[in-house]
Design a protein around this nucleic acid. Sequence first.
DNA 1: TCAACTTTTTGTCCAGGACAATCAATGAAC
DNA 2: GTTCATTGATTGTCCTGGACAAAAAGTTGA
Lengths: 311, 311
Amino acid sequence: MNNPLLPAGLPIAAVERDTGLAKDTLRVWERRYGFPLPARDTHGERVYPPEQVDKLRLIRRLTDLGHRPAKIIGLDLSTLTRMLEDMGSPKDPADPERSAQFAAILKFVRLHLHEDLRRSLQQQLMKLGLQQFVSSVVAPLSSLIGDAWLRGELEIAEEHLFTEQIQNILRAAISTQPMAQGGRPVVLLTTFPEEQHALGLLMVEAMIAPEGASCISLGTQTPLEDIRAATDAASFDIVAVSFSAAYPARQAVEGLRSLRQSLPEQVALWAGGAGIRGCARKLTGVHLFESLDAIPVAIEAWRHQRASDQA
Amino acid sequence: MNNPLLPAGLPIAAVERDTGLAKDTLRVWERRYGFPLPARDTHGERVYPPEQVDKLRLIRRLTDLGHRPAKIIGLDLSTLTRMLEDMGSPKDPADPERSAQFAAILKFVRLHLHEDLRRSLQQQLMKLGLQQFVSSVVAPLSSLIGDAWLRGELEIAEEHLFTEQIQNILRAAISTQPMAQGGRPVVLLTTFPEEQHALGLLMVEAMIAPEGASCISLGTQTPLEDIRAATDAASFDIVAVSFSAAYPARQAVEGLRSLRQSLPEQVALWAGGAGIRGCARKLTGVHLFESLDAIPVAIEAWRHQRASDQA
DNA sequence: TCAACTTTTTGTCCAGGACAATCAATGAAC
DNA sequence: GTTCATTGATTGTCCTGGACAAAAAGTTGA
């Protein structure tokens, strides 16, 4: 009956879903490296113990970041976790007040205190203003929570709870922005297929909206061809694409190259997010953002450029 | 180089993504039924022409609705489309004013007139109030747009544009609801894994919020085990799960049974959405909703029930 | 330091067999 | 006539093990 609520182990299809590793890849790793080495049920089918799945998740993240499977597949859980932390966020600036706030918010998430969570986020928003709130609260908190989930300290449900609350708050805040009619630049915002992370988009939108620019979000997972087609139908000045840390960097680079080529020349292509940090020199004609704070500046620069072009 | 912007045909992995049919299934159908019958590239790998992919998409929808592959795989595109329409929405009530509005909104979507789209939706919301807006505008429009996409009359990007705008409007509207502190019942809202459709959740939330109940949404794709665990951590009165038309009905039924069993008895389990229409008798202990309008009534009933229990 | 070439690594594809789970049809019992 | 068990066909997913192109790493020469 395979009751998913009493997990003795996962079948291969579930592991594929959970880790993002194709069934073929799982089988070929087993053949080549001896890991994962699942048990077998009575019909000879693979049954993966949860620990192996946890380890696979870590390995997957590390390979996305450029490590080779053969080099890391033999290491143990704690080593892998450490590697991931080393590669990730360089450091926290250790502002004591802020980190206390973050700790409190993390506690709310862990204890499912949605009401407290909502209130404290809302408070921060009021205090800091939308842009500041996004760049110095939402962004670091998101990666904190992502890391905590990776380390198994948080359930997926708890990450979802946080994401939902942030979405509510950001969307509400964005929709109260004065929204200049016909504001320029007009920005088309989306992610590539296979990128499901919607929060990055919303953060970008929140940085753009207060600048008086028009931002049209297509949500996640828009096929490249559709993005190009959208620039025919409407007159966008900028296409902006966001990549989460889980997105394979080479796939991002290739997609951006291809998209750059198919877009009209006068349409700028912007990209940002943890998924493509440090790929700048591989891309020409694409404006790469290392930080959310660079967005308002870039909008200003775009306007300046445009003004001088027309003169 | 396989430029996705000049599609001569899709490799099997892309077809799996587009149709939701596993690679194994695609190969075994070819072996058994002779369809799909893709071309081969120089390395002998399958290259699926776009028409075959379109047909596969339709077949997939029909099998989810209970048809057997062998019976329908030989039929042609127009026949399949007709079957799908017959099974789908019974009819439109032919309110001339409303259908004119819908036609206008569809036009805005098709022409990417996001500004007009936003304005006309906002107008409807103001005129009808949140609940009425959701049940008689958002819900029918969503299925209209879903159908149009299925028939190839809309790009995915256009569906996304619509979904994003609706999300913005609904989330903003929900967050302005007075939100009774500690309002009962407390509802936990989510979807099962593999169900990505977030709009259904938002519609439910919009129906619940004005009733003064507390609604905590976990967004899409929460593992069953996490849903159960969440009811430990916080005290929910109701767990509500939504299923889009694309969700396989039997999977929904099985999941609901399993979840019902693992939830505490005093927690009610509600389910709704096109994905489980007509499955009522297969489920005991689960409140099945055929329509969004039934939600406010059910909340009222829950309160009444509870009042008499305590007396 | 960079470019061109070679080798190794790695993910994905293929064929074709197997089989359990599901569905449809049939028959028995109430 | 409806319900329930039995049988038989259908169908999705898993298996093994071989193959190979694309990407990365290593090597050589300017």
